[in-house]
Design a protein around this nucleic acid. Sequence first.
DNA 1: AAGGAAACTTGTCAATGCCTAGATTGGTCG
DNA 2: CGACCAATCTAGGCATTGACAAGTTTCCTT
Lengths: 189, 189
Amino acid sequence: MPYHHGDLRAALIDAAVDAIESDGVDRLSLRDLARRVGVSHAAPAHHFGDRTGLFTAIAADGFDRLVRELVASGGDFVAAGVAYVRFATAEPGRFAVMFRPELLREDDPALAAARDRAGDLLRAGAGAGAGAGAAAGDTRANALAAWSLVHGFATLWNAGAIDAPAGAAPDELARAVASRLFLRGTDAP
Amino acid sequence: MPYHHGDLRAALIDAAVDAIESDGVDRLSLRDLARRVGVSHAAPAHHFGDRTGLFTAIAADGFDRLVRELVASGGDFVAAGVAYVRFATAEPGRFAVMFRPELLREDDPALAAARDRAGDLLRAGAGAGAGAGAAAGDTRANALAAWSLVHGFATLWNAGAIDAPAGAAPDELARAVASRLFLRGTDAP
DNA sequence: AAGGAAACTTGTCAATGCCTAGATTGGTCG
DNA sequence: CGACCAATCTAGGCATTGACAAGTTTCCTT
């Protein structure tokens, strides 16, 4: 094992994401992380400072990934919502950290930038998709409703609170659920 | 200070809820909790066994309180949703634990019972409120959409992710957001 | 080749969770 | 009334952890 790891920072983040996914955030130990990667117990501190720094790095990276998924999904509201849910359920270890301010260094520039990018994207997507059928001026409430819906679904799914048939895909169920929003006159009797 | 505290169990839960609310779940220390209440460092273990036991007790109590709020809100969907949000935002310390399986002893009877009561109530409320205007057979998706919406809103609010005007009441904003669900034909052009 | 910065290690300390054993109290039954 | 007994709480100890300080190895630039 060479003295220099190569890309220890990324390896630590990967290991941390895996550990969070299987055991939860608060059972994550920096020393155990170092053991898994095969470095000394103080190596993580050099890259992240402390626990908070590690979580902050994971969250910033997570928002970047989320942005990429949202962009790739196209502009449509439902598609963006499905992409949001797919990201959250496919990467629960990352998602579990992204909306937990107590765990994060809020003034971190990388985190703030990545989060802002994601926020702009979400607002724009929801406003565009929903604005067509709704009264003007409600776009803020509409965007908030859309974000709340997909965020809540993803959170509940990751918590195991939604009992779906075995093998069901969360993003497909999310599509059915998200389309309940902003039902138009055509669906009414 | 008497040897017997009187109601140490409740006092520990109260102190834990306060601590979680201000510092987050994972910064909660059983020893610090004991110090705040004025008992020895091993006293909490007698009542809860371990950390997981404490969180489980908090969650079970939380679901009981949520059930009471939902019942008191009346049968209407929007009212129940607003009550859900009000509970979650008024008791963030309790809510922060209730949907975190890694923190809980899932097989605890009290927790399972309280959670089931809350679940039944949520399904019934959402189904009744939304069924009127939606196609039959979609009640499951409708209930899920409603629950996801309010849960997501509450989660995002507690995370500080929603930038509302200073002093804004979360449950009022939630009412505006929740009414975006299941818009009927009358609202469409 | 030399020097400095970056990456990583070793050692240490207070604090924590959990375990075992002991002390104190309140109730219960003769 | 008094003796037991279970429940409640205390005391002590151990392995592990996060954070800090100081030293060592490697890489990069000039």
